[in-house]
Design a protein around this nucleic acid. Sequence first.
RNA 1: GGGGAUGUGGUGGAACUGGUAGACACGCUUGGCUUAGAACCAAGUGCCGCAAGGCGUGGGGGUUCGACUCCCUCCAUCCCUACCA
Length: 803
Amino acid sequence: MTEKYNPKLLEKNIQDHWESNKVYESKIDQREKFYCLSMFPYPSGKLHMGHVRNYTIGDVISRYKRMQNYNVFQPMGWDAFGLPAENAAIQNKVNPKDWTNQNIKNMKNQLKSLGLSYDWSKELRTCDPSYYKWEQLIFKKFHDAGLVYRKKSLVNWDPVDKTVLANEQVIDGKGWRSGAQVELKEIDQWFIKITNYAEELLESLESLDWPENVKLMQKNWIGKSFGAEIIYQLEESDKKLKTFSTRPDTIFGVSFLALSPNHPLSIEIAKNNAKVMDFLNLCKESKAAEADMATAEKLGIDTGIRVIHPITEERLPVWIGNFVLLEYGTGVVMGVPGHDSRDYEFATKYNLDIKQVIQLEDETELPILEKGRLVNSDDFNGMSSEEASSKIIKHLTKVGKGSELTQFRLRDWGVSRQRYWGCPIPVIYKNGEPEMVQEKDLPVVLPELSEGSSPKPLSQIPDFIELDKDVLRESDTFDTFMDSSWYHARFTSSENDKEIFDNNTKYWLPVDLYIGGIEHAILHLLYSRFFHKALRDIGMVDGDEPFKRLLTQGMVLKDGAKMSKSKGNTVDPQAYIDKYGADTVRLYMMFTSPPEQSLEWSESSVEGASRFLKKVWALVSGRKFESFDINNLEFDKNDIELRRKTHATLKKVQNDYEIRFAFNTAIAAIMELLNFIPDDYKDDAASDSNKFCLNEAIIFILKMLSPIAPHICEHLWREYQYDNENIEIWWPEYNEDLLDAEEFELIVQVNGKVRGKILLNKDLTEKEIEEIASQIENVKTHIGDSQIKKSIYVKDKLLNFVI
RNA sequence: GGGGAUGUGGUGGAACUGGUAGACACGCUUGGCUUAGAACCAAGUGCCGCAAGGCGUGGGGGUUCGACUCCCUCCAUCCCUACCA
């Protein structure tokens, strides 16, 4: 009788062993390094399935790389500032700091129970002054490098609670707590000039080993577009309006201009025009989120002001449109209803002229969005869009009414947040003039809240704000994306309280593999890339990019929907870790779907994962390695087949782990190998050659499975006593010579339909194969009396007779 | 509205380079073991059909000897949309 598989006890023992021997603490050595980073979590209190999936992927790869003799660094920490702590603090009357720290404690225990091979000695939390001190320093350095400025921008304002709301706190235009109609309000904020790096952020995407869809999303987000700046003269005024258009070829189709409601001219007009004022106020009843702006009904008002068309000198009306963003381009849109669907919708609604100036080969209804040939465009008629664009730009440049212009969609990064639980922005105001806090005075520490008091914006904490007569402290905190934009670098030097980065940083950076949710494809990853480049330019880090390779995992769903508290469909991973053990949960997560796809949670599949581990246990437990001299063994057909399967599986698993990240198919292959072992090989009476082949299969299975199910494999490895090494010390090698079989199965098709399968020797010629295949009964039947027009042969695979 | 993905049996998924659709699992059915159940073991399991055979990868169309894979088009779901992280 063998011992029963008891994951709970076994896993605890193995984990204690890892911890007391500091197995996963990394330091610089001679081997090739591998920095494997999973996106650190927001400490919400409990691990959710998405975390488990993310961190298992990272751990599998880390363990695999470790077995391949890389010097692996896999740290973990906490993205500890943010809105949820404030919400929880208000709801439960606890201090955000205590709440956060308690959550971290819980989640750390959970992570440990999953058997993740983290180097906990490098742990960091962004809410700790020892971390954000350096963030404040970076901000100061960015400022000194000319990357920081102040400007007004829009926020969601709750007029009842008198607070700024995040987009997610605005529900159907109302504040989530007060229920009051939210207003757009302009306030002064700090910005960082990420747009200085727009070109480089775009270009160096090419050098990254990232999924193409993520690169494409970033490219589109940065949104480089070529076009023209076109200047319109206001009638009876010396004022001008600048517009940007990517389609200067449609300039003869302009029938109106539309200003953003926040454009200075709109505001000026409103001062003397009550109707316009009303309209601007109406526009304020909106939400700052782009998705809401873009889907809102298009509204506009005629300002009564007219401009002169730069070429035709026609008078065109100037409207204000709620769909025009001040932040993009110049905040003025030139309306070409014939060739832009949004302008078309607007013009139809307000009875504005719709002119066709582009024609396609075939008749098409307006609006025509494609490029074509110009019509109704004076001297430019008949030209292609491309030719006309460049000629029109040339003409406008000559007459001083425009010029060629390249525009980015990317906007500068507003980093000010009017919140308590964040990193204080290290600025003081002397007589209203901002000044960076000196390096020696950092960190500016977040003030403690008095017992039981709710978090409040720092502006309401006089002890913090008021420094001296006419000397005030900045009361905003940083966007939490600031915290997460450089943590990957700080992990390497987190033990150093004298310097922000050190020699360890030089050794470990860049991150070789970064793993996280697809939802971070744009913002977090773009900000981190920007930070890295800006830090490089102030001499703090080396290299152009922080993350060499990226793996984006899909969501964990239940019943086709994202798990969320509001839907009440969350599944607590801890319950499953307790019931089945970490190895089963890890195996389930890796087996159920490939990492990049979303994963549908299914309880019964967990059962299946557990069953497989029990089978592995049943095969190995109680068995000891027996040594044989391979030269004395004679392998029969079954032996050779098992060895082929064993070595082929290793080859496949290596490819799946390393190249494809297809852990699901790697596991399926290991399952196949296990199923392939003949029962009599497991018998005590089996021949020496049988036993040798079984030994080999067992060794390979434990090694291949150990990155995914490290506890059970380590335990069985010790018990099996092949060597006295830790299972993670080495990785087996497959023998290419064993992979080739003498025979193959030929698929015989007639007109592309399978009509026969036949086992053939590989040294037959194509002619011989055709002859044999054409004699198969079912093939003969389907060919009948017909003439074979041609046959297509795919070597060692398929033969198709076309009749 | 814009950008990016996904869609294959009852379920999760496989098919890596245009070449056997459904690997590997889950579930289900039948049988074995058992007083019974659980667990375990064995066999079967895309759909229609007695069978021969036909049909089948979200819908429609196309390219090809051959399409889950390439092209066009439509539909559904998910992610992001700059203050959730």
